[in-house]
Nucleic acid binder design. Structure first.
Length: 744
DNA sequence: TCTCTCACTTC
DNA sequence: TGAAGTGAGAG
């Protein structure tokens, strides 16, 4: 069935289209096709000819259609839209008088994130979805108080590797599995004014992580394969689908737009917080992370050794009682125990622990008695780094008249780092870290297609950009002049009150364009459930949509070689500060690169060097192993969608690595010398180990000293412990524990 | 490795 | 009071 905008109601759906499409002729036709059901999510599709085909399963069609008109020009938060969102003709959006902004983003709970990162990052993913902990919270500043902003978050693959936890540390275990469909999560309060955003901490704690590919909490928007900006599928939902044992990097986006419909035409400022990088797991691998979360997550209080949590205490007491029983048995029978390594570990633990400490979970055993390879503490100390505040890394990418926002020193300018030559067309966001210290620098990625009409966006190349200029001037007369085709990283801009830190590597365009080229959107539950955001967005993007069957079509043949190589050229943080124009072009060309959220189709992501959290990631990983350059020769050839020329060849991996790493170190040195010194200092190691123990033992009644492995062999302590345990056992015998773990 | 259930928590 | 969020542990 097909109907025009003048007759917006779709039979059986009570749907009305949102006619506001900033760069479209008002009389474009939109058609709706019901009955087609994509594999996982309903899809909004649009043929390349500009007509929109809307495809939704029947069950979802109505609630979504009911709200296709929503918060768009009203500015009402999507989460506040009810199922009966107001449907009415929408007037043409009047361009607002804009005040230039300079958004800065500060990561909240940074100390916790730092600990999280030091100890080896792990985030549990479950079938039903698990929240992130630490929660992703940011504080924004520098926004135009009056302007409306949409805040988004997504999670992208950090590299192209699969990991395993071996010998108390994360190691590369091969090539990454095909990526899950990607989504982006729009903060439920979006859109809101800058004043509103700045008045509070923006939290994304409701975003959930899942490994359930059949997750229904989302849907997909499909875009025409020949579209210059939007290709592939964009998923929206409350949960992001991740692969277990893979590394990911959350990203935060600020979009100056007063409705979702403007997203495709708006500037994306993307902020990376390297310390928020994590490895998705279905079960915790690293005890340190487990303990960190237990100690800090209120919901895990039950597992703490203080408070009302009893499970661990019971478990430990039961274990100890069993051990004591064994000891007694040995004494009585004069036989030696079949001491397994596990038992030995326990003995060590028991000997060094007071009764109070006995409540410590078994997770501490490794710390106390490292018996396999290098201890976690050692791993931590090796990757220790300074405690200085870390803010987002900022990368700006624009395909239109994006103003050159980095007014700071050259040091804060673009650090276009190595993009993995095998970059995935669908995903510009494969990340890697350029320098351990660079992660203390903010990085922002601003990607803009603002001012690009649908037709113009289909015309790749600079002509398109030029056209977009005029287009934007027309659409957004209030806008300041933009410098087209620029890629910049403004480390300082995103850093609250802190100077920029070089050594920060990015492939701004890669990440910046990712959203447009295949990165899906996540909507808050309210948005999805009520359909407000999605509907509005879907309607707005209608003209941009193309029919896509299944995961994605028409995106093959599009590739990111140019971007990847371009980013690779900028691997060195310092040298990348001045990004060659042709590289910028490459990055911009990425706007024309099709990307699919389905990794199986596009298993070769763009990779750009971001702040090198990984380099110092504790048990998390070895940055060397996952360094994209080491995988260069495994990269497949890529095709370019954009007609842009590729002035520079893909650099040799070895040379890239050789040149990039020293420069990273050099770049990090001057600005982060203190941190580097701390990281390298044995003293810092000792301090950290102690602090870590202290922090972990904050809930322990005993001091960290008693937890020290050094005390393991001390016979006196052992004797004391044994006596204590015996006393405890006596108590247990008097009052049997009902713990499950205590039952045979 | 993953899934499920459990006891415990917060809100 | 109950829904929802926790890690542990069994399978």
């Amino acid at each position: 069935m097909s109907l025009s905008m003048r007759d917006p109601v779709i039979p059986g759906t009570s749907m009305a289209y949102h006619p506001f499409l900033p760069h479209r002729a008002p009389d474009f036709a939109m058609s709706a096709v019901l009955g087609h059901q994509p594999p996982f999510f309903p899809a909004l599709t649009l043929p390349p000819n500009g007509a929109a085909a809307l495809s939704l399963p029947g069950a979802l069609a109505k609630p979504i259609m009911d709200q296709l008109v929503g918060a768009a020009e009203t500015g009402i938060p999507f989460s506040s839209l009810g199922p009966q969102a107001h449907l009415r003709p929408l007037k043409t959006m009047e361009p607002e008088e804009e005040v230039e902004d300079d958004p800065k983003v500060h990561l909240e709970a940074k100390e916790l994130w730092d600990q999280f990162h030091k100890r080896g990052t792990e985030m549990v993913i479950t079938k039903s979805g698990r929240r992130m902990f630490p929660p992703f919270k940011v504080r924004c500043s520098g926004l135009d108080k009056k302007a409306k902003y949409i805040l988004l978050m997504d999670i992208i693959a950090a590299d192209d590797c699969r990991y395993k936890f071996h010998n108390s540390r994360w190691m590369v275990a091969g090539k990454a599995d095909p990526e899950m469909p990607k989504r982006m999560y729009i903060h439920p309060d979006s859109p809101a004014t800058g004043e509103q955003w700045m008045s509070k901490v923006v939290t994304f704690h409701k975003l959930k992580l899942t490994n359930n590919i059949s997750d229904k909490h989302g849907f997909t928007l499909a875009f025409p394969s020949d579209h210059a900006t939007w290709q592939g599928n964009y998923s929206f939902g409350t949960q992001t689908i991740l692969n277990s044992m893979h590394k990911y990097q959350p990203r935060f986006h600020i979009v100056r737009a007063n409705d979702i419909l403007k997203l495709p035409y708006s500037t994306f400022r993307t902020y990376l917080f390297p310390e928020t990088e994590f490895i998705a797991v279905t079960a915790y691998q690293n005890d340190k992370i487990t303990q960190l979360k237990i100690d800090n997550n209120p919901f895990a209080k039950g597992f703490r050794d203080t408070g009302n949590g009893r499970r661990e205490k019971r478990k430990q007491l039961t274990l100890q009682s069993m051990r004591v029983f064994d000891d007694r048995h040995k004494k009585e029978n004069g036989t030696s125990d079949e001491s397994s390594s596990e038992q030995a570990a326990f003995n060590c633990f028991a000997q060094s622990s007071s009764p109070a400490v006995s409540t410590v979970g078994t997770s501490n055993l490794k710390d106390l008695c490292p018996s396999e390879g290098e201890s976690d503490a050692e791993a931590d100390s090796k990757e220790e780094h300074g405690p200085e505040a870390c803010d987002a890394a900022k990368i700006s990418t624009t395909t239109s008249e994006e103003p050159c926002r980095d007014k700071g020193s050259p040091a804060v300018k673009a650090h276009l780092f190595a993009a993995e030559p095998g970059g995935r067309p669908r995903d510009a966001g494969r990340l890697d870290k350029a320098s351990p210290d660079s992660r203390h620098s903010p990085a922002t990625i601003s990607s803009s297609t603002r001012g690009l009409g649908a037709e113009e966006r289909r015309s790749p190349g600079r002509e398109g950009a030029a056209t977009s200029k005029a287009e934007e001037a027309r659409a957004l007369p209030g806008k300041e002049a933009f410098a087209p085709l620029t890629v910049q990283t403004d480390a300082a801009a995103a850093h609250l009150g802190q100077g920029p830190l070089p050594g920060l590597g990015f492939a701004p365009g890669l990440a910046g364009q990712q959203f447009f080229n295949g990165h899906p959107l996540f909507l808050h539950p309210g948005q999805f459930a009520m359909g407000g955001a999605f509907s509005s967005m879907a309607a707005g993007m209608g003209p941009l949509l193309a029919t896509v069957s299944g995961a994605s079509t028409g995106v093959s043949g599009l590739d990111s070689t140019a971007m990847a190589s371009a980013a690779a050229q900028g691997l060195s943080g310092a040298s990348a500060a001045t990004l060659p124009f042709h590289l910028q072009q490459h990055v911009l060309a990425s706007q024309g690169l099709a990307m699919s959220p389905f990794g199986s189709l596009f298993p070769y992501p763009y990779t750009y060097m971001a702040a090198a959290a990984a380099a110092s990631s504790a048990a998390a990983s070895s940055s060397v192993h996952r360094h994209p350059f080491l995988n260069l020769n495994t990269m497949r050839p890529r095709l370019r969608y954009s007609p842009y020329s590729i002035p520079m060849p893909v650099p040799d991996s070895s040379s890239l690595l050789a040149t990039a790493l020293p420069s990273m170190a050099a770049a990090a040195g001057p600005l982060d010398g203190k941190a580097a010194a701390l990281a390298a200092s044995p003293a810092s190691v000792a301090v950290d180990s102690g602090s870590e123990l202290n922090s972990r033992s904050s809930t322990l009644s005993s001091s960290s000293v008693s937890l020290s492995p050094k005390l393991c062999p001390e016979k006196e302590a052992a004797t004391s412990e044994l006596q204590n345990i015996q006393r405890l056992v006596s108590g247990l015998e008097a009052k049997p524990d009902r713990s499950r773990s205590g039952s045979p």
